[in-house]
Write a protein that binds this DNA or RNA. Structure first.
Length: 753
DNA sequence: ACCTCAAACATTTTT
DNA sequence: TGTTTGAGGT
């Protein structure tokens, strides 16, 4: 037997060497799902299948990368690099760029991220003069996205009475109009949102039989990871592609389907047998990851769900220690508990930071945990939240890049037309937008073809012409020079570089460093790219599809991982903390209405605890700080669903500094109301301070040359005074920060002698 | 056009 | 509690 088949168990091996035809692998948590996929691909290659004929779709870029690496290690880079491997979105965007003219898009189309989509919807709602309290941008975007994921275009929406009725009930009668305009504007901007990448691919295959034939021939073997999380449109595409050779292999676990909010349809995996009647299926039920206690606990939870494919996950692993469940008084207390436990285990067992993960239901929970870890000097990394590419300064610079590649990109243009300041304000932009809409062109086309427009005064026209000149130069540079050269030029000439360089505040310095990091990344890209594909457009192709996990830095290696349970899917850690196990939190309040939603929360919890290899810690707080006040909370029902004999329950006694006020601890409500009152008082005090300051401040006494103290900037020197009375202003120089103009009325400056 | 502060608002998960 | 929006002033 070949070496690569030796380290597989019987079932795994059957799945790997299965001949042609539809194949479904139901893989329980920790049962070696990725191993089966990679080995199957290796097996196909060994059997002489051309790597160009294999399409492997994963859920994240990271998973794709990891698979490619594993395959490369066994079979070599020259073969593995030719595999089609990536997320649905990245693979299909590549195909769409290749075939773009067929669907009437330029090759350099932009990919709008969620924020771009929201901004566009916001402007459409404004232009239509609709009530923004009824038409909430987030909701509208979600609805459009859900419709698209179910392959309901705006045309189909108009034909569907039931959907129209839903919107009538929600008093959003203009929804269809917004959807239609949104779609047209995206097209006019040569932009696609995430969902378009799927829809347009399907349309491409539907409208052009020759293309369908071409890609069916190309992708003779199709493998799909995390099949339980595919949505309807993905399902349709795959079905079309696979319909000729039927060599489709799907791997998944219905018990880990957690993305229904994104349109994932658990029916896809449950109905596989109907779609492909002559299918074969294997079940991987042996768990290699977790202690038997953890496996048993996981089983006891998931059996509460009604809808599922029957399977029994078991393990040969030792029993291990019991799962610790701890009740804490507050979210901060929970944070301290986690931090203390981590450092304790680290000392006793010589575990490394990267052995630990803290998982939570919502991103907002990271704050309290972060604070506790910082206090204990435990290094950590947070995934999710604001990723590198989402930061303002990065998005600003990227917007210039986007414009250089596709000047019709409306959202990019709006973002930077007045950043850095060049005196093109809201009124001008509104005018431009109106003109663009009326002659059905893009804003850029209006700006680029200005000839003595009567609606704009001469000064404004001059500014716009200058802007057009700049962008046109960027277009030329990005076409002619390599990505690094072009991006550096753009960073400098746009004014972003100096804008950030001159900001010497700590945040400003950080922003400047981020810009440099981006440029370094581009430099790296150019050094590794082929000559013919080292342009800025090549670099920008996938940027919108990158996430936090794809940009891991080297120095992030030995750190405690903090992430949402969703983000933890597919990962494993020796020690796992699942925090915030409270009703309305986990299960989340948004999911409490329906049985289906609750079952999904349960699957999410199942995913959470099956991440753990050795030890699992569950915690909940009886009170949590939210929206500026303490909210009482109850233990999550999921804890009670776990088999008692797997658990060891504790109540966490707060650390020493709180023990001093022990008498308050007798009644948690008491301490909460106390804290709350204290907080209120603080706020009131702030207000009073502000008022009194107004009356008795040193406003009148402050003179040029004096040293003053500011609450956040520290000591500075007055270098200029202007205005009188309430409008009296001072220019103050703070060392290390720079000059600031401030109204004395508000600045609360104290004279320093 | 730009700047500032206070009021209003908001948290589910993400390619 | 943080962040975004809007009013009102320059």
């Amino acid at each position: 037997m070949e070496k690569y088949l030796l380290d597989l168990n019987k079932e795994q091996r059957k799945a790997v060497i299965h001949k042609d035809g539809p194949l479904m692998v139901i893989a329980g948590a920790g049962s070696g799902k990725t191993r089966v996929l990679t080995h199957r691909i290796i097996h196909l290659l060994k059997e002489g299948i051309n790597p160009f004929n294999i399409l492997s779709l994963t859920f994240t870029n990271k998973a794709a990368k990891e698979m490619r690496n594993r395959i490369e290690n066994i079979i070599g880079n020259s073969i593995s690099k030719n595999l089609w491997m990536g997320t649905f979105h990245s693979v299909f965007s590549r195909i769409l760029r290749f075939e773009s003219e067929k669907i009437n898009y330029p090759q350099n189309f932009t990919i709008y991220d969620t924020e771009d989509s929201k901004q566009l919807i916001k402007s459409i709602i404004k232009e239509l003069n609709l009530d923004k309290d009824i038409y909430k941008t987030g909701l509208i975007r979600n609805r459009i996205s859900t419709l698209k994921n179910n392959f309901i275009t705006y045309q189909k929406y108009y034909e569907n009475k039931e959907l129209a009725l839903q919107d009538q009930i929600a008093k959003r009668v203009e929804f269809g109009k917004i959807y239609q305009i949104y779609q047209n504007r995206c097209h006019k901007a040569s932009a696609m949102d995430f969902d378009d990448l799927l829809i347009k691919t399907y349309e491409l295959l539907e409208l052009f039989p020759d293309l369908l034939e071409k890609y069916q021939q190309k992708f003779k073997y199709i493998l799909i990871d995390e099949y339980q999380d595919t949505n309807h449109i993905q399902y349709l595409i795959v079905k079309k592609l696979a319909s000729k050779f039927m060599n489709i292999c799907v791997v998944g676990d219905d018990a880990q389907s957690i993305y229904s909010f994104r349109g994932a349809n658990i029916q896809n995996i449950l109905n596989f047998k109907n779609d492909y009647p002559n299918y074969t299926s294997y079940k991987l039920e042996q768990n290699y990851r977790s202690s038997s206690t953890i496996v048993e606990a996981a089983n006891s939870i998931i059996k509460n769900n009604e809808k599922q494919i029957q399977k029994t996950v078991w393990t040969d692993n030792p029993k291990g220690e019991k799962i610790i469940v701890v009740k804490t008084t507050s979210d901060n207390d929970e944070g301290r508990l986690v931090a203390n436990t981590i450092s304790e285990i680290q000392m006793r067992k010589q575990a490394h930071c990267h052995d630990f993960a803290i998982l939570y239901r919502t991103n907002a929970q990271s704050r309290a945990l972060e604070e506790s870890l910082r206090k204990k000097n435990i290094p950590y990394k947070i995934y999710g939240g604001l990723s590198f590419y989402q930061r303002k300064e990065i998005k600003d610079l990227l917007a210039y890049f986007r414009l250089a590649i596709n000047p019709n990109d409306e959202e990019a243009l709006k973002r930077i037309i007045n950043y850095p300041r060049r005196g093109i304000g809201l009124t001008t932009l509104q005018n431009l937008s109106l003109m663009a809409n009326s002659n059905n062109s893009s804003i850029w086309e209006v700006i680029n073809n200005l000839d003595n427009n009567s609606k704009l005064n001469n000064g404004t026209q001059k500014k716009l012409k200058d802007f057009a000149l700049t962008i046109n130069e960027f277009i030329i540079k990005s076409n002619e020079k390599d990505a690094y050269f072009a991006s550096e030029e753009i960073a400098k000439q746009s004014g972003i570089f100096s804008e950030l360089y001159n900001d010497k505040s700590p945040e400003g310095v950080n922003r400047f460093e981020n810009i440099q990091e981006l440029l370094n990344g581009i430099k790296n890209f150019v050094e590794h790219a082929e000559k013919e594909s080292n342009k800025l457009a090549d670099f920008m192709q996938d940027v919108a599809l990158l996430t936090d996990q794809d940009t891991e830095k080297d120095n992030d290696f030995n750190k405690v991982t903090m992430m949402t349970v969703h983000a933890a899917k597919g990962l494993e850690f020796p020690y796992v903390f699942v925090v915030g196990l409270e009703e309305n939190m986990f299960p989340n309040i948004m999911s409490s209405e329906s049985q289906e939603a609750l079952e999904e929360e349960r699957r999410l919890f199942y995913v959470a605890i099956t991440r753990a290899e050795k030890r699992l810690f569950l915690s909940f707080a009886s009170s949590r700080f939210k929206w500026g006040q303490f909210i009482d909370s109850e233990k999550s029902r999921f804890i009670d669903e776990i088999d008692e004999k797997c658990l060891e329950k504790h109540e966490h006694l707060p650390s020493s500094e709180l023990k001093k006020s022990k008498k308050f601890m007798l009644n948690k409500n008491q301490i909460d109301t106390k804290k709350y009152a204290l907080n209120l008082n603080k706020r009131r005090l702030k207000k009073v301070n502000y008022l009194t300051n107004n009356d008795y401040s040193d406003t009148e006494k402050i003179k040029n040359g004096m040293n003053v103290k500011h609450s956040s900037f520290g000591i500075g020197k007055i270098i200029n005074i202007s205005g009188e009375g309430a409008n009296k202003k001072a220019t103050v120089f703070f060392s290390g920060i720079g000059q600031k103009n401030m109204l004395l009325k508000f600045a609360k400056l104290q004279i320093v002698k």
